[in-house]
Design a protein around this nucleic acid. Sequence first.
DNA 1: ACATTATTTCTATAGAACTAGAAATAACGA
DNA 2: TCGTTATTTCTAGTTCTATAGAAATAATGT
Lengths: 99, 99
Amino acid sequence: MNIGDAAGCLESLGNDTRLSIFRALVRSGPDGLPVGRLQSRLKIPGSTLSHHIAHLVNHGLVSQNREGRVLKCVANYRRMNDLVGYLTKECCSDVGGCP
Amino acid sequence: MNIGDAAGCLESLGNDTRLSIFRALVRSGPDGLPVGRLQSRLKIPGSTLSHHIAHLVNHGLVSQNREGRVLKCVANYRRMNDLVGYLTKECCSDVGGCP
DNA sequence: ACATTATTTCTATAGAACTAGAAATAACGA
DNA sequence: TCGTTATTTCTAGTTCTATAGAAATAATGT
């Protein structure tokens, strides 16, 4: 991962609503959750939710696959792993006790 | 670290300029760098730089200590460690291969 | 074809963020 | 005290971002 992608992912997660969405997806495991399920859980208007999900998808943190009428959203664990790897490697230091 | 602090840190680092500042500080080790040094390295106007540094300081990612006329900025490794810990614990999953 | 459900795109608006010049403050040496 | 260097605060302009209602699209069953 390069610095631009990292900043993009960080910006995506650096918003309370989007971080909540992402956490909900991570917790729900590899099966993910339909958009409507996120909507009822997080209690936000569909258009707003859709906007934020698109942001996460654009930065590779979430992927979607349609199952009939329902759109399943899944956290992209590999992408998140890459991000954490970048932060650990490029933004931490042996000196300071980072992993 | 709680979700609010995490989102704040992520938002801080989710900006190309601030991420560059932070990386420069991390790379320079526990001695850090003076503001002026960052300015000449990153080639950005003082007021803009000051604005971004204040943002990082406000979110606990950078601390400052004056040495005479020079203000030294130092990356807060512990804070960064906490952030990475939060992401690993709350936003990753065993299933997906995250650490 | 139509009704229903699920989700997105369009559109507008209010507020926040980024940028940077100019003026102000801080620290120090002469 | 004055001048110089280092940095911040003030101010303003422009550009992004978040929000959400309304209309449009997609998918399915009847």
